[in-house]
Design a protein around this nucleic acid. Sequence first.
DNA 1: AATGAATGAGCCTTCATTCAT
DNA 2: GATGAATGAAGGCTCATTCAT
Lengths: 217, 217, 217, 217
Amino acid sequence: MSESIRTSEQTTCATRQRLLEAAGEVFAEQGFRAATIRDICRQAGANIAAVNYHFGDKMKMYAEVLKYAYEKARAKYPSELGPQATPEQRLQAFVQALVYRILDETRLAWHGKLMFREMMEPTEALQTLVEEAIRPEFERLRTVVAELLGPGADIESVLQSVWSVTGQCLFYYHARHIIAVLRPKGAYSQQDMQRIADHVVKFSLSAIRCIEKPKAS
Amino acid sequence: MSESIRTSEQTTCATRQRLLEAAGEVFAEQGFRAATIRDICRQAGANIAAVNYHFGDKMKMYAEVLKYAYEKARAKYPSELGPQATPEQRLQAFVQALVYRILDETRLAWHGKLMFREMMEPTEALQTLVEEAIRPEFERLRTVVAELLGPGADIESVLQSVWSVTGQCLFYYHARHIIAVLRPKGAYSQQDMQRIADHVVKFSLSAIRCIEKPKAS
Amino acid sequence: MSESIRTSEQTTCATRQRLLEAAGEVFAEQGFRAATIRDICRQAGANIAAVNYHFGDKMKMYAEVLKYAYEKARAKYPSELGPQATPEQRLQAFVQALVYRILDETRLAWHGKLMFREMMEPTEALQTLVEEAIRPEFERLRTVVAELLGPGADIESVLQSVWSVTGQCLFYYHARHIIAVLRPKGAYSQQDMQRIADHVVKFSLSAIRCIEKPKAS
Amino acid sequence: MSESIRTSEQTTCATRQRLLEAAGEVFAEQGFRAATIRDICRQAGANIAAVNYHFGDKMKMYAEVLKYAYEKARAKYPSELGPQATPEQRLQAFVQALVYRILDETRLAWHGKLMFREMMEPTEALQTLVEEAIRPEFERLRTVVAELLGPGADIESVLQSVWSVTGQCLFYYHARHIIAVLRPKGAYSQQDMQRIADHVVKFSLSAIRCIEKPKAS
DNA sequence: AATGAATGAGCCTTCATTCAT
DNA sequence: GATGAATGAAGGCTCATTCAT
């Protein structure tokens, strides 16, 4: 009888929300396939059938979670600056947001991880995720890099630099277990994250400026 | 009744060998959990019970496969330049080898894929893998970067640049699905790979030199 | 491709055989959908997973059961006479076999019922059942009726008489519950079945002869 | 909390009525078990809980639907000829009405289908259905056949001929799927139906007359 | 009179594992 | 050295039903 899930009066559909959060954590940790509906429901304090009721099936729930994750991540670490900001400032904002999203190991910060998981082992939901969440950010970064490289840069060069910037950031996520073995240390502090972001920005800006000069001269 | 399970030391046995190869491919493609014993056995032309007979259980087989993969991979890809080569040349060699290994899908045998997988979702086998296979390469790259940065660079700075170089390369593997959606194109040609490697080298060298200067001055 | 699933040609295997029998009874009684694998396995003294092992899935098992039912039914009540028999004798044999298959309420005689169920509420298996089991019998009856009607009968007339003969037989199955209410009586005895078969034969022969005459004259 | 469940006596209520109609169609098409409450409610434009609210549960709703169907069907199809008609004419009328009812798919509303279903897989409601709807027709046909066979015919013979006539008609419904596979053709035209009815009448009359003669002599 | 939310039982299926030969 | 047969645990999903409003 202590199982009673809803004791307080909540007008919004609390269960759905709890499912979304629980599923986010579990999916982020285990991946789509390994995660079980039972586990998610238990963690959300909901009945197994709740998933079917609220989302239809596991896959549709996953898609919703992914969308939700994107919105949450965007809200938590906004990466967009006004158009009057310099390209350097906008690059800094972008990298910083990306690094923070990746390295924040707070239990509530499953958002970034879920998205990177989807990137590594895509499901049918990838297409949507890319078009709605990733492509806009990608285009934004591309614009910034294009401005930094100057008008002489061709499309391919811009793209390669975009990958270089992004790759430096994602590495800290993808190689986290390797890094942990090669250079054991605790969790990333706020300072660590800032230092990493600063390095990536400096490294990238230096490279871009050096690359750009020979072309300009 | 108890012990007739083979260990990797023992005499090669046709079925066991076929299982090892088949398991390698399947594990690399699907991951430990998603891979099924039935699938592996079918592909190896063996009976379902063979896995249990030869390895004990699925997990033990995975461990053997990983060890086997490591031994195989160790034999390939020496890619080391003599110490008389310049740091720039050695960086070029390193990056090129890594990029080629990653992008050449016909050449990235299951050994490579499996090891990347283990990096993302490690089992107990990771520790060994890192120490025996990855650390040597890491130290080599660190030496190169340290030389490039000059004696003034502190350990952390060197490390960060090492990550930056590696991150740029690995990105093309980890983000392959995203890239495929963002910029659809066919397989990488020899030229593509060379261009990518050249870009990473140029980008990194430019960055390192620009970073180094302010420190030197 | 190397399915370990048995096909109907392979060696009998005790559990498989028990499953076939149990499934036959249960499917005949409850229909494909309502029948549960658990029930069938319990009745067969087998594990739930046995269905998957021996047949693949519920539907494939059903198809096998249907095929098995047909063979059994044919063996139990053979309806075929040698070609030297008169058409009248062959009609008698056909009707008698059909009536017996339908009305035999022995617990072991689920064969006929299962097939009639499939006729009423067809699954994907119907097509095969018709082509392999029903059409041959149909053609046989059609030949007999054609001979009885004489060479003057057109195709449609033959067909209609075929339906008339068959309809009279099947009625005792399809309307069994109605009959039981309209004229309550116990199970059909051997004598009852014989009387019914005789009536259908006499009724049909009379009709066919009377129909034929006006055409001949 | 207990009693506000409606019974069929009570005031008509829009939702309830729509549920009744929707349930009729779905039950007729899919059968009791395969039909889902969700499906019915969707088709009726009602909430899922409406079934429980209006009828108590699925089974009780089915009973109500059956009763409703019977009342509807009773109103239709009087098809009785005056007593001054000859037995042949009355047989013709009976067969024709039955065949038309069965084969005209646009006219065999769900009422008919549902009742045929109930005949095949009866619930407790069958008894009533037979007594109130079927027995009168049965008695009418029995009288006709008795008259045709003449006073010498014993009860059992009359009965068997009644079944023979009815069986020929119902066959076109029960075996419709088989027929569709054995002799693929489109829907039955007006002409087809008439031809079938005529055949059944001629076949049956011929049989009855031939059977009767030997007895009379 | 009616409904959105939630539930629990049960179904088919899959899988790694074990047993007897 | 190897295999066919069999098993139990678990997973995703569906459904009729009930609760609170």
